[in-house]
Design a protein around this nucleic acid. Structure first.
Length: 301
DNA sequence: GAGCTATGTAGAC
DNA sequence: TCTACCTAGCTCT
């Protein structure tokens, strides 16, 4: 599930597990053979994320750049590693752990200069302590592009994907079709601060939850007709009322909720393809200046 | 079990 | 603008 929070969680896990260890590296699928072979026998020094990009550094200055794309995964487990299952692009092994990378958009040996070049293309990452939010804010407030487009532009802001975009705009009552230059600076400040909190929460949970705690009950009621999802994160714990509510809820306000009533105003959530990606928003809560409020969805009860 | 969809980007044309 | 990547969760049968 690769928005920025997934990559930061992955990087932290890899760093905790492998940093300081001599590793074996291979490409069972064959597509990363030349790069993977060079790394065998070296110490893995660091794994870090920048936006949706993962960088794994090794002694001797080698750096592997990974981008998971839409459905790439990297999973680790205790050694010994079994026979590779599926198309494993890159396998890392230490004496105690192994990790398999499958289906990435990118997995290349890039070196420190390559890493710098990739990072130079990216806007500030809300999950990094060294982020410079003013850079992103200046780009947004000076642009005629819509905020819906700007938030997804990794050169403006890195790590935000389709879910955080939809949810952030909803939480701040901003239409995705508003031009960046028309956004109030105070609203943008609040959006950045919120994004930092939401994405850090995503790293902690391993899952995106944007519902305020006070909205959990109401959303669970709205979703009473939905089947309870299996959520491994919630398994094994006590089945408290809060856990039951979370298990039933999607944890979000608008993402993939098209046609369902908005929690706050009752207007059906809308969806539209914009630049090849599905955009979700509430036409009631997220109106452009001067736009009329649409009718709420009629209750069926 | 089959089929559909998706949290994304790079590269070919 | 289209396609590759070729996973994994969800829905339908």
């Amino acid at each position: 599930m690769p928005e920025g929070h997934s990559l930061h969680r992955l990087a932290r896990g890899l760093h905790r597990t492998f940093a300081g260890d001599v590793v074996a590296s291979s490409s069972p699928q064959g597509r990363f053979d030349s790069g993977a072979q060079i790394l065998t026998g070296r110490v893995l020094e660091e794994a870090e994320a920048y936006g949706k990009h993962l960088f794994v550094s090794f002694e001797g200055g080698e750096v592997v750049h990974v981008h998971l794309g839409l459905y790439g995964t990297m999973q680790k487990a205790k050694s010994p590693a079994p026979e590779p299952r599926g198309a494993v692009r890159w396998r890392l092994e230490s004496p105690t752990w192994y990790a398999d990378l499958r289906g990435p958009t990118a997995c290349d040996l890039v070196g420190p200069l390559g890493r710098e070049a990739i990072v130079a293309r990216l806007g500030p990452d809300p999950l990094r302590a060294d982020a410079e939010p003013e850079r992103a804010k200046a780009r947004i407030l000076g642009s005629r592009a819509t905020v819906g487009t700007l938030l997804m532009d990794q050169a403006v802001l890195s790590g935000v994907g389709n879910i955080y975009r939809a949810e952030l705009l909803y939480r701040h009552g901003v239409s995705p079709f508003l031009e960046g230059r028309l956004l109030r600076p105070a609203v943008l400040d609040a959006m950045w601060a919120d994004l930092v909190l939401l994405m850090n929460d995503g790293v902690r949970r391993g899952r995106i939850v944007t519902l305020d705690p006070g909205d959990m009950d109401a959303m669970a009621e709205l979703d009473a007709d939905r089947p309870a999802a299996d959520d491994p994160e919630l398994d094994g714990g006590e089945d408290s009322p809060q856990i039951r509510r979370l298990r039933r809820s999607t944890g979000v306000y608008v993402y993939r909720r098209q046609g369902r009533a908005c929690l706050r105003c009752g207007v059906p959530v809308a969806a539209q393809d914009v630049q090849g990606r599905r955009l979700y928003w509430c036409p009631g809560c997220q109106r452009l200046p001067g736009q009329r409020r649409p009718r709420p969805k009629r209750s069926t009860t």
